[in-house]
Design a protein around this nucleic acid. Structure first.
Lengths: 177, 177
DNA sequence: TACGGCATGTAATCGGTTACATGATTTA
DNA sequence: TAAATCATGTAACCGATTACATGCCGTA
């Protein structure tokens, strides 16, 4: 079927349910924050809405506690596992940086002199901090299980630091800025 | 005023109008595709809707042709230039990679053996192609005017190629470069 | 004057975000 | 048992995407 009504957040839910077993929205959010959250964020409410949709599509099942918090526990169904497999096999296509900092940089010539440099200073601090975080993560669990995507995060932050340093220094090509 | 109802697409419009002068939605889209489009995409219709909002906010003005295509020409107002300046001065915050390829990679362990490698092969081709594009752009206009953001694009694609090569080879330990 | 491509717009829908609102556990 | 924190959910709104629809213009 390869249902077209499934988006990235659908597969985040399906993926975690397949990986960790039945879970509540709260647990899904916790897992997301600690893993994919480093390169793909969304508000908490998304993980309350999205599972509902998947239940409606028959991909996962829901069971609500009768007592206590009456929270909903979601479980993958066979159709859900199927959908995940299909998605994993399909080409991913390309992403985009979508970085507000780059957007500002592009228009920085519209501002007063030094606009790009001020921006660069801010961005440098942010990227250096994240780089340090990632390096710490890499050190803390250097084993096989470490998230595969960490390698990309490290590279990305490293070149970001390099890039913004260059902007800060004000040396691009030749003359005017 | 620093109106909170302005988003990135608002400033794309304001930025281009400030940079190039009065323009139609069509021209805005052309400029966007050739510059910021490399790291920030959106559908064409956005550049018909967004200027309307800005007119409503009193940041730009609109004038429609009486004959011919009766197209709308947008012009920045002083308030619009103000808003752009305020935005340029403000911190940009952080972006995120938001790459579907990384998302799939994260869940690739849920698929059959070789899932990550197949993904890596696809991503490698895409990133190599883009890298070549950017290198060509850099060569074609090496002068001052070349987009500042191109430098980031080049770095990003280069490390992406490096990263996916590593995944393809199946070696996770990313120490050393 | 017919045709193909360029250009221009609107409408419906929806995923995602913000804001609102409350209940359950734990601990002091 | 009161306070603090953890946890859970809903509703309204809005930016963004998809799909629909049409009109002008150059040119053959």
């Amino acid at each position: 079927m390869s249902d077209a009504s499934l988006g990235p957040s659908s597969f985040i839910v399906l993926g975690f349910l397949a990986q960790h077993g039945p879970a509540t929205s709260y647990e899904l959010k916790r897992w997301a924050d600690q893993s994919v959250g480093n390169f793909w964020t969304f508000p908490r409410s998304q993980l309350y809405a999205e599972p509902q949709r998947l239940v409606g599509l028959g991909l996962i099942s829901e069971s609500q506690e009768d007592d206590g918090r009456r929270r909903r526990l979601y479980t993958t169904l066979e159709a859900g596992r199927q959908a995940l497999q299909t998605w994993l096999k399909a080409p991913a296509g390309t992403g985009e940086l979508r970085d507000p900092g780059l957007l500002k940089l592009h228009f920085s010539a519209q501002g007063p002199e030094g606009t790009a440099q001020a921006l660069a200073a801010e961005q440098l601090a942010l990227h250096r901090a994240r780089l340090a975080d990632y390096q710490a993560m890499q050190r803390s669990h250097p084993e096989s299980g470490a998230s595969l995507t960490l390698g990309m995060g490290l590279r990305y932050e490293a070149v970001s630091v390099d890039f913004w340093e260059e902007i800060l220094a004000g040396e691009q090509a030749s003359s005017e800025g």
